[in-house]
Design a protein around this nucleic acid. Structure first.
Lengths: 199, 199
DNA sequence: TCTCACATGTAACTAGTTACATGATTGC
DNA sequence: GCAATCATGTAACTAGTTACATGTGAGA
């Protein structure tokens, strides 16, 4: 098992969690579920098969842990081979996935849209990003209060969390700013006919 | 054909180009190729079958245009039904695709990385985003010089282009800023042992 | 002769989503 | 009894990528 095999990004994502501490497939799916992780997401239907693959390749092992009040679970942890594969993956060139953004795609056809419909769309999206930003800011405040000491330690997991969080904050801020700017453009440039119709 | 059928996002992307002016599948693939379009991308192997589907559903039609010095081509244009489907799609709720970013995923494991390797990774990515930003800024300068009159007209295609471009600029600026900040953190917090090794 | 741009397609694969399937226990 | 959380899986599908396949004409 395991000689020069490469990790998929999903494999990397799973190992990056298991490197922090052993956990079950279910726990991984909670960490990687949509509203939680800014940086990577996956459903359990993708995670369980990937865990089997990682296990076959010898990158992870598991022990079945019986529980009294809930179903038994498989707790996975990273093997030495897994650690090596992970380090190789981490240092390898970053795979840049093509940017696809449906709102920006629609903005490309703003010229043919009804201003009222456009305003509704961009206001909804602005609100979504502001909500997400608030959530992130709350986490940030909590982290800065609770883990302030560890936030100048490159080797602390808290600092890594902080770094990814800061990207989420920057992303949402910038996205919200752009939405607001588009809304203002529509409000100011609109002929008045349909630009006024919703609020 | 064509009653309440919905467009895929790729279908929307293709129609958004054909709404601007009729063109061939090849032309569409040039518009949607990786380094060009910030907002949506697709390969020709995805575009041609999608054009067939759109054609079957009656959303587009084509005429074969013979050319003397190059191969013949099919020039597609949007039908009235296509226009209606597009308008419905444009007004429908935006499908938010889950955020997946491999660099941010790696940042999540910064705690276990070698500082030299991390610096290399983040410097490369910073450079990539700065290059992209420069490219966008050049386009922006050109647009502001050439199409300044149309940049206050909501119904002009130039203004739509400008709006999508501004998102690209904001995105790259923010991404670059975050990379820079991470690099500075690594340089300042690094123990000195491996943080210095690459310049 | 070879490569590049134009031009259109299909086949095989990988990644990811949605839906199906099962089963325990806790709290309402 | 019903919904929710914990827990693990598979099947069927959609979307997207890589590779295969073919052919023209221009220019080096």
């Amino acid at each position: 098992m395991s000689d020069e095999l490469k990790l998929t990004t999903l494999g990397g994502a799973i190992l990056s969690l298991l490197m922090r501490c052993p956990m079950s497939g279910y726990d991984i799916s909670l960490q990687l579920r949509s509203p939680v992780s800014y940086y990577w997401q996956a459903k359990h239907s993708q995670i369980y098969p990937e865990l089997s693959r990682l296990s076959e390749e010898g990158y992870v092992t598991y022990t079945v842990v019986g529980q009294q009040d809930r179903p038994d679970k498989k707790v996975y942890s990273v093997t030495e081979e897994g650690r090596e594969a992970f380090t190789r993956w981490w240092a390898s060139p970053v795979k840049t996935s093509p940017s696809r953004d449906e709102l920006v795609l629609r903005a490309f056809s703003l010229w043919q849209a009804d201003s009222g419909v456009a305003l509704r769309l961009f206001r909804e999206e602005e609100a979504r990003h502001l909500r997400q930003l608030e959530e992130y800011e709350a986490i940030r405040a909590r982290m800065e209060a609770e883990a302030s000491g560890k936030l100048n330690d490159l080797t602390s997991k808290d600092f890594s969390d902080y770094v990814t969080l800061m990207r989420g904050i920057g992303y949402e801020e910038e996205y919200g700013r752009w939405c607001r700017w588009v809304i203002e453009q529509i409000e100011q440039l609109g002929t008045g006919r349909d630009a006024q119709e919703s609020e």
